[in-house]
Design a protein around this nucleic acid. Structure first.
Lengths: 293, 293
DNA sequence: GATTGACTATAGACACGGTCTATATCTCCT
DNA sequence: AGGAGATATAGACCGTGTCTATAGTCAATC
């Protein structure tokens, strides 16, 4: 192990670079005797004379020049590191990795991401798609800084903040126009082909459970893999899709889809922003979460 | 300029490398609280959290990992530098550059060089030929560590130690066998073709001056560029060579040359070992000079 | 659900040493 | 000879790096 105080190398670097102990002292905001003392200490620690001194300043000895060739590189690395740290601190560089579903990115996070990117263009953005359990494991592995998923999340290692509240609903296209402006029951709804999200999404589990609670079994006619397809299938008249209302606001507005009015209240769902408990956030992630609030 | 005490990076390096403040403390021969304090200090200086802590130890944050990528390289460089310094100190590596004439290397320094190289095989040897003024300028430029030339040397920037004493003399080969065992005068000598070293060597200047002191002018019939040729020419009977007796001991012994006995005493010449005054010697050079004494 | 062990954080005290001022010394230059 | 500018040395002081002691936290184990 090194016996030498690394701080002495910093002094050595400046003394060698400037060829003057006085100059080095200036650069280091020290006095000349301090630098003189530091160099002597370094020389004694190494057992080698590093400089020869004359009335004009100092010059490296052969051995000192060898040392300098290493210390210079080392010092430059540290300088770069410190510059990089300042950038990271000022959010001039860095990376923000977010886990979530495509639809949440598209319909919920996008405006925040846009604003964030505009303010901190140096920060790279990584959006990683996955199911809720996948995202949780990404979080634990450190592959994402934060996750955006549907509540509730119960993992004790995670800290969850509530985000926006969403409302799921059933929508249909022109083919089922006769259902428009009618209030229908769950039982009636089951007569129609239902289109659900294929994966074990929280939304699907919720609605299945709701039907179960009323004694019915919800079996989809069609299962699709994305919110985009849910919308498209409903528009084409293939059935009635269960979607998040906020994600089809455009289609509801232009009339290509309409919402089925039910006699029961469908449960709202909360978006949660997950981070690891007891793990400091990156500055970028921290700043981003502040924005969302 | 860096605000951070570089010693803190050493602590950071070990903490990051071992993933534990306690382990780092052990490696640094410190206590755990000291390391904890140092890391906190570093984090505050940079304004960035570098580790997250848990009951198992510490782990780098994103930003900490960035810092580590630089500090690790920097630290490795310093380690190599310190290893190299130890080598230089122990004379396991380094270089010894000596300036001198070919003949002095061959007939005077060779045995010392041999012994030195045997004891310190890690030290590279550089023998640089040149005239006395050339060697002096090499010394001043730092291109050689020490010079070995004929005395006297009067340069005030140089420090000269006396080496071996040499005796110049005139020698001839079989062709001038009639001069053998005769004592002859300078005037008589001038009747014969004289062979001198061509360059402005100290030896030639000395003998020319000696003749001048007696009222004669010494003009060589032949001028040659090396001691080897001086010997060869004399052996071939081309004339009488002025050489250093110690450099022709082999030829004097095997009878291919004999020394001309003069009625005046030729001045001896001293070998001097020159080093720069007020400039520390490299450890290798220092050690070598100790050997010569 | 106590208990134990391994780890880090905090508090407070002490002493070492890093830094300063003042001064000496040296060399070069005018 | 004197001045400018460089390094070396001496000695004093203050800061801070380091220690001991203790608390707090988490995880595993019985």
């Amino acid at each position: 192990m090194s016996i030498v105080n690394h701080e002495l190398y910093k002094v050595f670097y400046w003394a060698a670079k400037t060829g003057s102990l006085s100059q080095a002292a200036k650069a280091l905001y020290l006095t000349q005797p301090s630098v003189s003392h530091a160099i002597k200490q370094l020389e004694e620690s190494l057992g080698i004379t590093l400089f020869y001194r004359n009335s004009k300043g100092v010059a490296l000895t052969q051995e000192g020049a060898v040392l300098y060739s290493y210390i210079e590189k080392s010092h430059i690395l540290i300088s770069i590191a410190e510059k990089k740290m300042t950038e990271l601190k000022n959010l001039d560089s860095g990376e923000l990795k977010i886990g979530g579903s495509e639809s949440l990115f598209k319909h919920y996070l996008l405006p925040f991401l846009e604003e964030f990117h505009q303010q901190y263009p140096g920060i790279g953005l990584s959006l990683i798609h996955g199911t809720t359990p996948e995202i949780i494991s990404y979080l634990k592995e450190g592959r994402v800084d934060l996750g955006v998923v549907r509540m509730p999340i119960t993992d004790p290692q995670l800290e969850v903040r509530e985000g926006i509240q969403l409302q799921d609903c059933f929508v249909a296209g022109a083919h089922y126009a006769d259902l428009k402006n009618k209030v229908i029951t769950l039982e009636m709804l089951l007569e129609y082909p239902i289109i659900l999200f294929s994966r074990n999404s929280r939304a699907r589990m919720g609605i299945t459970e709701l039907f179960h609670g009323y004694g019915y079994e919800l079996k989809p006619e069609i299962e699709v893999g994305s919110v985009g397809l849910l919308i498209e299938c409903a528009q084409k008249g293939l059935g009635i899709s269960y979607v998040t209302r906020e994600f089809v606001s455009k289609e509801l507005e232009d009339g290509s889809l309409f919402e089925i009015q039910l006699d029961v209240q469908l449960p709202p769902s909360q978006v949660g922003i997950m981070i690891m408990r007891n793990m400091p956030l990156s500055r970028a992630a921290n700043q981003f979460i502040e924005r969302i609030k």
